[in-house]
Design a protein around this nucleic acid. Structure first.
Lengths: 265, 265
DNA sequence: ATGTCTTTGTGAACGCGTGCACAAAGATGG
DNA sequence: CCATCTTTGTGCACGCGTTCACAAAGACAT
């Protein structure tokens, strides 16, 4: 999960659990694919497989939306596409601004998934005056000075931050002050926002680090105890101190070259 | 959060909960920043604030790694940086290949967070022959034909997929066959992989859809009728679909089909 | 040494999410 | 109209994750 929710203690929004909301786009994608192939109905089992989830979970998720299935038959594909789209708020058009038109910002601007899903890129904004006017993905890049007026004029409520980490909080503040209440943050920083503003974070390097953890674990399984049965609940309580912890403490001395000292920009 | 875990029923890897592992990179980032400012020690409260989490949660997370703090004082910044780096497997150098050098792939290649955090981009791979040899982020793009040999020669175990959705599964299969056991997938597709292979998914459009859901909820708190725009100023252009299932049932639903032909590529 | 003060480490309770398993509902065929 | 078969919708139990609250541990001053 490259995800990170800020605030919001897992509030059950209108009775729909957060975990379910996070899966609805997944279902929607699978359903849209079926729709394009003119498949009229689909069972929870088939759809679950296509979406990569458990069928019981899928049925429970749908039960939060209402009883949209027919027992013995399954779900009407078109109908379900509409219901989920409506629930997610995709039946309306959301104007979005992207701030920070570097490599990533340009990639986002060109991302087809936005336009095709109820989102419209209202403007691309960058702080570099040299970028101003330059067309990216068919849109002229606007300068940061125009940020407030762009948001106000277009009624933008969702902003995407693709700036360097150092500029993110400042951009965030301006977006919020101008009226944006939902932010998708690609900068590797924790954003501080007032209550009522949603922030979702996508952090590329964090995802890789999590993968590295599991990769290391796989590699170390052979070296250490190859025990398949090593998953006992034995170490549940008590300090599960790794055997090498004591030795590691010796290395405390200081400046090891191992530790990368450079933050990602 | 742009994250999505595939498979793996929340296995508690070596006693460290998945949720904790996912937060370690966050702590590491905050700690590295402190380290650069030569801060010697930090309390759980301060660090928790910097990382954007609850202090009790942070202490419990660290307790899974061992007792690395000093009561009454806090945690030694340098020592903790090393411990977390080691736990995440970042004290070694992970060679990574990026497949699909479109907009997103190029952005990833240029992303500083990779190189500075124990990851090394071993190669950039693209299926387009016209791209071959072209330098991106200082590396010459290699053709897909070389995929297997690149992975084998460099001992790559982590692959990043930034191709269009249609090519993702095929690329994935080849990566896995060549020996890759961890995949970071940016293509909007559910990847099927054999046991033992980890897949993490980053899906840009899903994140936006989740934001839209909450945004709609905020806007519609007073209004019951769906499809109500949030901000009062601008008229929300668009497809305010005639409510009702009937309208939905006559072909062509929402924006348009999913699976954008052009991926974040 | 002794007392005070700060901060960690964790036991325990609670709530959310997941998955099983099954009854109810409806389709379908005779 | 009845029997059978398929698939939904959900009650229930279980486990993970989060949070509170506090005792234990150490630093520091006197």
């Amino acid at each position: 999960m490259a995800t990170g929710r800020t605030h919001r203690p897992a509030t059950r929004s209108r009775g729909i659990p957060e975990a379910t909301v996070a899966r609805l786009p997944l279902y929607l994608r699978a359903l849209t694919a079926l729709s394009e192939r003119s498949v009229p109905t689909v069972s929870s089992e088939e759809l679950a497989t296509a979406a990569g989830v458990n069928s019981a979970k899928l049925r429970k998720d749908f039960s939060y939306l209402g009883s949209y299935g027919t027992r013995g038959v399954g779900y009407d594909v078109e109908y379900l596409v509409y219901q989920i789209s409506r629930e997610l708020g995709l039946t309306q058009d959301w104007p979005v601004v992207i701030v920070g038109i570097g490599n990533l910002g340009a990639a986002l601007a060109n991302y087809g998934g936005f336009a095709s899903r109820g989102f419209r890129v209202a403007a691309l904004i960058d702080a570099d005056p040299a970028m101003a006017g330059k067309p990216v993905a068919g849109l002229p890049v606007r300068h940061t000075d125009e940020l407030e007026s762009i948001i106000s004029d277009n009624g933008v409520s969702i902003g995407v931050i693709a700036t360097p980490a150092g500029a993110a909080q400042q951009v965030c503040d301006r977006l919020v002050a101008a009226g944006v209440t939902s932010i998708l943050n690609f900068a590797p920083t924790v954003l501080a926002v007032p209550d009522g503003v949603d922030v979702r974070k996508v952090d590329l390097s964090i995802e890789l680090q999590i993968l590295a953890f599991h990769e290391q674990r796989k590699a170390g399984e052979d070296v250490n105890q190859p025990g398949q049965g090593a998953r006992t609940t034995a170490s549940r309580t008590g300090s599960t101190r790794p055997a090498g912890a004591a030795a590691a403490r010796d290395g405390r001395k200081g400046p090891d070259g191992d530790v990368p000292a450079v933050m990602p920009a």
